[in-house]
Design a protein around this nucleic acid. Sequence first.
DNA 1: CCTCCATGTGGAACCGTTTGCGTAAACAAT
DNA 2: ATTGTTTACGCAAACGGTTCCACATGGAGG
Lengths: 352, 352
Amino acid sequence: MSVTIKDVAKKAGVSPSTVSRVLSNNSRISKETSQKVRDIMDELGYHPNIMAKSLVSKTTQSICVILPKPAEELFMNMFFMELIRGIVTQANRSGYDVLISSGANEQEEVEAVSRLLNGKRVDGAILLYSRKDDKVVDFLQNNNHPFVLVGRSPKYPDLLSVDNDNVQAAYDATQHLINLGHQRIGFVSGPPSHIVSRDRLEGYTRAMEDSNLSMSKDWIVEGEFLQESGYRAMSFFMNLPERPTALLVVDDLVSLGVLRGLHELGYKVPQDLCLVSFNNIAIAELSTPPISSVDIGIYNLGYTASQALIQSVTHVGENQFQKRHIIPHRLVIRESSIFSPTKSEVNTRMNI
Amino acid sequence: MSVTIKDVAKKAGVSPSTVSRVLSNNSRISKETSQKVRDIMDELGYHPNIMAKSLVSKTTQSICVILPKPAEELFMNMFFMELIRGIVTQANRSGYDVLISSGANEQEEVEAVSRLLNGKRVDGAILLYSRKDDKVVDFLQNNNHPFVLVGRSPKYPDLLSVDNDNVQAAYDATQHLINLGHQRIGFVSGPPSHIVSRDRLEGYTRAMEDSNLSMSKDWIVEGEFLQESGYRAMSFFMNLPERPTALLVVDDLVSLGVLRGLHELGYKVPQDLCLVSFNNIAIAELSTPPISSVDIGIYNLGYTASQALIQSVTHVGENQFQKRHIIPHRLVIRESSIFSPTKSEVNTRMNI
DNA sequence: CCTCCATGTGGAACCGTTTGCGTAAACAAT
DNA sequence: ATTGTTTACGCAAACGGTTCCACATGGAGG
């Protein structure tokens, strides 16, 4: 049997209400009483029961985050851990706890979220928006539960969301390659159903157009967010009569596939082909050679998502705060796009 | 205002107790009443308030897992996500929720855990045991809260724990190299403060001894669980008058460093040096060449940890169940240790 | 016909907090 | 001396459930 507020009250010779008021030290309690109660609390090892507190306060001081389905596991592992770290750090700083949930399929996800939100176990949810259509989003909207999307959705334009400016990110990355003298730049995209693929493609296209560089359909291939897609894209590009001299790749993992393919065929990066990709997950730095990548601030995405959500649950009703949060990106240049002077080889990249 | 058990009771023309009994369908409620109540619940969209339930039942149906400090972030990202996935999946299957917590330092970790466990927000904790000394472990033990360790600890031998047989794992990996004909096998270890380094070193040593292969101190170098350590170890080994022909590496990330170093110096893997490492995180498969690695079943570690913890909190007092769970490992052989026939190069590995 | 037991349900206490309202005491102002 | 105001605290209801106990009903057994 653990020690309750009543035990403290009794031992201190006051009422439970007084102890409660000491706990939330905003009320008018005399210095002496307050100190005495605090001493007793320490002595007895009192810890307020969070469940009881949230029963009456009608707030749980916790949020949940929905893990995507196992199918997307591989792609998401590094990404998601970083995101969670950001979320948990921010949430804890605001005195909130974070609950992780998942479901084997969309239906299970909805059930899990329903149990958590409707059952008043959490105050709000963070979810990764991936597909164009999402039953979880629909559910949360219909029951108007507070939630925030990581990513953006054309279907739900004015939801609370945290995202990058992927168009600009792709523009910047492409511009980087153009500045290096490249004119024939290919783009390895993801599935067109993902908005992020489309945004990055758009940024790429704009940058090419702005520099009056020609593009053909051959310069653009679509795939999944998987290594194999990169491998296939690579062999497609390298078999072209006019090969590109640089590639913009939608995700680091895909880049890894490109890299492996090139390695197998005996091509060198960046000498034979330059590479820039997106997301800057750990493997970008760790691969051989390290991959230039647009850092999208995953931790920051999580941190900001948590912040936005908690703000919206604590100030429910007030509608004046920002809906869309754009996290800044930053191009991290590594060996895959720039010839490294530490290696004593002939730089042939400019002879294109 | 959400719908409560009383609303359901009133509308159904029964008492709250009856509704409660319908919810936990074990009591003696007539078929018709039960059905009627269920219908009303659906109609009203009733969801039991989890907080209220756990206030009286004194069980929260949730556990927490403590993230290690940011310092270990890099090493842990992929590992931890996989672990969490295992934990969450199992927990959800058992009707439990999982709460993620972290702290900037050990003191903060203790405070977080104290708040969660003493505040009765969670029923138990899962934690990664890393160092030889751990305030969190001490805290949990002293307040005898249910918890399970992922990893093993020589200081606390008979705690509830989930772990691999790292000695055997290293033995198997070494034996694999020996079977391939290697005689000069080096070992790149982690920090000796980590029990996992010591265990794997022991397995390596035993295997070498069992095959009557000579070892010198030069064959064993210690480092961190970082890429740089691998890089340094590589240059140490390659400068030796008598180089090893194969390396056993304590972690995939370290292997990546070795690989990069070899690549820079123009050496080929596995032709010039064979590599086997541990953990089999995603990068092992994705690197060039793919790294042979001992899969330690990270998901399974998490899954089992959750299972063990939940079992121990639901059957508290009963002391008869298993304390130490050993998760099986499995050597995954890839190109880094075996010459791949798909590549048309001369196999020089056996000419050692 | 009376008792007994099984079955189905209601009443009320309780879980550990918070909080609105009430009040006693002390002091200031009239 | 009476009234008003402030300060410090207690009482009790509420939050939304669960569960022990009581009670009514209806057959079965004697």
